[in-house]
């Protein structure tokens, strides 16, 4: 009787709703603490990033134009899909150094975080909008709108919770994004792309690359069709580089280097959504004919 040979998973990248290999043909093999190779992972290139930004830009009009309620349902769907594949994520986290207990906690927290932001999709606008009592005879109101395409270097010290914590508020607010996964722990990011792909998230809304921040960070910061960049490490040289490159097109550079993504109190709030929102103010005259008052 022969033993069954296990089918190994190929870890690919996720661009525009497709799972291509990197155009560069390059790969790297991150290892866990036990020295075991995790997988041959795509070493994404500048060209992969450009393709992903193109996909994100194409998806932006449609995604930002969706009803907020619809986005809420889609985020909730992501959480449902993640719940269903919990075991796989726990396995991958364990493979990437976590204890079984910590792995389960991280996956549970990730699911809950997506639910948390699913709920905000159609609520943060009400909290952060205003009707402005201007002195002239005009109706005037301000509402948040998504900034556009956001490039994200995902938190490097975690495989799943960091990634989920930076993607969820960005897409909850109607932005699209290109995310570079944790270099050393990339497995969950690719599997999370599969979850996204089966959750009615339109192709291009979330694009996930694997590779080296040291190589790609510059491009993430300087691309002229990216409106905001998120960086989560305490690395002053990189933060400076990002801000300098961001000046090319007045990109919003957002840093989350002090955040512990496992701390439920401090690592989730609607302010993570408003960080990539613009405030739009609209004016319209109110007619002033007649003298009737709303007196009754």
């Amino acid at each position: 009787m022969s033993t069954r040979v296990e089918v190994l998973k190929t870890y690919k990248i996720y661009i525009g709703g497709q799972f291509p290999r990197t155009e560069s043909g390059r790969y790297y093999s991150p290892k866990n603490k036990r020295g075991e190779s995790l997988a041959n992972v795509c070493l994404s290139s500048r060209k992969d990033f450009r393709d992903a930004v193109g996909a994100a830009r194409n998806a932006f009009g449609g995604w930002s134009g969706r009803a907020a309620f619809n986005r809420a349902q889609i985020l909730y769907r992501i959480a449902e899909m993640l719940e269903g594949r919990k075991a796989q994520f726990i396995d991958e986290l364990v493979k990437q150094n976590a204890s079984a207990k910590d792995a389960e906690r991280e996956v549970n927290l990730s699911i809950d975080r997506i639910i948390y932001y699913a709920g905000w999709c159609d609520k943060f606008q009400q909290v952060f909008s205003s009707v402005n009592p201007v002195a002239s005879s005009h109706f005037n109101f301000s509402v948040p709108e998504p900034t556009g395409v956001v490039s994200i270097i995902a938190p490097q010290n975690s495989s799943l919770i960091g990634l989920v914590s930076v993607i969820a508020p960005i897409i909850a607010g109607g932005n699209t994004c290109v995310v570079l996964a944790s270099e050393d722990q990339p497995l969950c990011a690719v599997t999370f792309a599969e979850v996204i792909n089966s959750s009615d998230v339109p192709g291009g809304v979330v694009n996930i690359l694997t590779g080296k921040p040291s190589e790609l960070i510059k491009y993430f910061a300087e691309h002229m069709d990216v409106n905001a960049i998120i960086y989560c490490e305490k690395d002053d040289a990189n933060k400076k580089l990002i801000q300098e490159k961001s000046a090319l097109n007045v990109k919003r550079a957002i840093f989350y280097d002090g955040v512990n993504w496992l701390d439920e109190e401090k690592s989730q709030s609607p302010y993570f959504i408003t960080d990539t929102q613009e405030i739009k103010t609209t004016w319209h005259p109110i007619e002033t004919v007649g003298s009737a008052k709303a007196g009754y």
Partner: peptide, 10 residues
């Protein structure tokens, strides 16, 4: 108007 937020995109 002072009550009306002003500022840009892009």
């Amino acid at each position: 108007d002072p009550t009306s937020p002003f500022g840009g995109y892009k």
